[in-house]
């Protein structure tokens, strides 16, 4: 049953990824500015220009260009970066590990800390703790990421000198970026966990379990957690895309290499192939995240399988 669901869910990815790739392909053609102009030396003739345009295949029909492009994408051939004059695949391969490390750690941080905090705040019903928790959740979901990053730099790098201001050397340079991205994530996960647990413990079956004389710990870990985990997993999976999106800002502030900073730089230089590759990778990550979330949801909740497949 779950395999069937997974199969159909993955089939759905085909039209979605097709539309996304068309949008990404087209958007870049709407960008103002022309990278060929950046490449031409002063005093070049129109013939030189035409030769360059032909070299990058910019003179062909848009539909043809799309299919050539998407065919190459499938082979991992992202083309040549026009301004940086290097294979885009190299640039992506060089920057992707940094984004994955940062994203993975931020994801791990926000899920573990968020779920722990959410669980604690749902069990320990202390008014002061409750208020602190709510304040934290509010702050985490409202404070702009780049500002938090700047404040952390001011405090930990400038004042205390614990971590480097920018760059990507060693684990020390990862601490502040992970904390920055994780902060919003922790707040979100904590809120969802807290609400899910509080809703779950109001269910009749929990009263029954208490009546049967089970210990609170058993009820929490054996019965409440699996029940409450569903919305948490869904949010976490959706968060994968958001973490990558949030990483764009944070990479920029901390001057870290990564897909986000590559994208921002390429946008500034109007380097079409790089912009396309970055967007495609980010879109892929978002889609994979939602896919994982949906499958996990279906695996845990039969009702989802029935409804969607």
């Amino acid at each position: 049953m779950i395999l069937r669901y997974t199969f159909f869910r993955m089939l759905m990815l085909i039209p979605v990824s097709f539309s996304i790739s068309v949008v990404i392909f087209m958007i870049v053609y709407l960008l103002p500015g022309d990278p060929i102009d950046n490449l031409l030396r002063v005093g070049s003739s129109p013939e030189d220009r035409a030769k360059l345009v032909a070299q990058y295949g910019l003179d062909r029909n848009l539909v043809v260009q799309y299919f050539v492009w998407i065919g190459n994408m499938f082979q991992g051939e992202f083309g040549q970066a026009i301004v940086l004059r290097r294979p885009v695949a190299d640039l992506v391969a060089q920057n992707l590990p940094y984004s994955l490390t940062l994203g993975g750690l931020a994801f791990l941080f926000s899920s573990t800390v968020g779920m722990t905090l959410g669980t604690i705040s749902a069990i320990v019903r202390h008014p002061v703790l409750d208020r602190m928790m709510r304040a934290f959740i509010l702050l985490g979901s409202t404070v702009p990421g780049f500002w938090l990053a700047l404040l952390l730099i001011l405090l930990f790098s400038v004042k205390l000198g614990w971590f480097p201001v920018s760059g990507a050397g060693g684990w020390q340079s990862l601490v502040l970026p992970v904390l920055t991205i994780g902060f919003g994530g922790v707040a979100l996960v904590a809120r969802v966990t807290r609400v899910a647990l509080m809703d779950a413990r109001r269910e009749d079956f929990v009263t029954l379990l208490h009546a049967k004389g089970l210990s609170s710990g058993t009820i929490l870990f054996r019965h409440l957690m699996p029940h409450a985990l569903l919305p948490v997993v869904t949010i976490l999976a959706l968060r994968i895309g958001w973490i990558l999106g949030g990483a764009v800002t944070v990479e920029f502030v901390f001057g870290r290499p990564g897909l986000g900073s590559l994208l921002i730089r390429a946008l500034g230089q109007r380097d079409y192939p790089v912009v396309q590759a970055c967007l495609l990778m980010l879109a892929l990550a978002v889609m994979l995240g939602t896919l994982i979330g949906d499958i996990a949801q279906a695996a845990m909740d039969p009702r989802v399988r029935e409804k969607k497949s």
């Binding site: 539309s19 103002p32 999106g245 949030g246 764009v248 994208l263 978002v286």
Partner: peptide
Amino acid sequence: MTVVDLTWSFPDILIALIFVAIIG
């Protein structure tokens, strides 16, 4: 709804960045 769901799954900063990049 297909288009909406598509943009829905993307981080808002990414959508905004692309748009600003297009029209300057």
